[in-house]
Simulated scan of single mutants.
Amino acid sequence: MAARDYGQYGGAARALELVGERWALLIVRDLLVGPRRYGELAAGLPRIPSNILAARLKELQAAGVIRRAPRSRVIIYELTSYGRELEPIVLALGAWGFKALGDPREEQIITPDSMTMDLRTAFQPEVAADLPATAYAARLGAAELLIRVDGPSLDVKRGDGPADLAFRAGADIRRLISGEIAPDRAIATGVVEVLHGRGLLLDRFATTFHLAA
């Protein structure tokens, strides 16, 4: 039984009973990036109370959305095949919410998993298919990501590595991704600090990752 029961018989109501509780979809979002230990989920959602995290995990597990699995002598949480069906819904919800993003509040942060999913949301595979394979090393707030694009395929991992374009940015990178400002203006105003590969920000990154607000 879901924590919330709308008393209605229908797909939308049932879906919200399963994943509509506060924090539930953000847990799903982070697990779409990859399996996580309990502590990793807590670190990625720093404002979630521990009792709420435990409750949501229990509810999602009971609903068949996630499962607990032993791995290297630790317990990890991962999405089931049923849970992974939420990916296009989470991406579409992210694209919809992107249109309402304003300037970030002082206490709002970028996490590696949230930025990974935002990049997956903004990725334009049909554009990337016509461009050479490119690696981007991005420091986005405290999140350090290595982004590899090869044709219509996107791979985002935590950490650093060899890259054709390396840059730093904060939450204002949304202004570049939304097309609010052009790449050269993003550099000139300090929205993006390019470490090397400046030209690739202009003619590849900004067209490969684009999501109109």
Rank of each mutant, 00 (worst) to 15 (best):
P132W: 00
V149L: 11
L32I: 03
I66A: 02
T116C: 08
G44A: 13
A15W: 03
V194S: 00
G97Q: 14
L131D: 12
L32R: 00
M1T: 11
L45P: 03
G20R: 03
A100F: 07
T134F: 00
A186F: 14
A13R: 01
G170R: 08
A182G: 07
L45M: 01
L86G: 02
L154Q: 05
L25A: 12
V194D: 10
I52V: 14
Y9N: 14
A129M: 11
I75R: 12
Y9D: 15
Q108P: 05
P125E: 01
T189G: 04
M115Y: 08
R148L: 11
E87V: 02
L25E: 04
I177N: 01
M117T: 11
E59L: 06
A137F: 09
F123T: 04
A169H: 01
I52T: 15
G170H: 03
A133V: 09
S50Y: 06
R174M: 10
A143K: 02
H210E: 10
A100Y: 13
I173A: 04
R14I: 04
T111N: 06
A95W: 05
I109S: 11
R198K: 13
L53H: 04
I109M: 07
T116G: 04
T116L: 00
P88C: 08
R204P: 01
E87L: 08
G7F: 06
R71P: 03
S114H: 09
A69R: 13
L57P: 09
L146V: 04
A13D: 08
I76H: 09
G151E: 06
E126S: 15
L16S: 03
F123L: 07
R105D: 12
V194M: 01
T189E: 15
A163Q: 00
L91C: 06
P104D: 10
G39Q: 15
P104R: 13
R185T: 14
I147M: 07
A186E: 06
E78D: 03
I110P: 12
L176T: 01
R68E: 15
D164L: 05
P125S: 05
F209H: 04
G159Q: 03
G170I: 05
A122S: 09
L45F: 02
K157R: 15
S72R: 14
V33C: 08
A100M: 09
G39M: 12
E85G: 14
G39V: 10
I48E: 11
L195A: 06
F209N: 01
G102Y: 01
V90A: 09
S178W: 03
V149A: 08
H210K: 14
G7H: 03
V65S: 00
A212D: 13
A169D: 02
D203I: 00
R204V: 11
D172I: 01
E85V: 12
G64N: 07
A2E: 02
L31T: 06
L146G: 04
R14L: 07
G102C: 04
D155S: 11
L86W: 02
E17F: 07
A142I: 12
V191D: 10
G64T: 02
G20L: 02
L16I: 12
A100W: 12
L165H: 06
E21G: 13
D155T: 14
A95F: 07
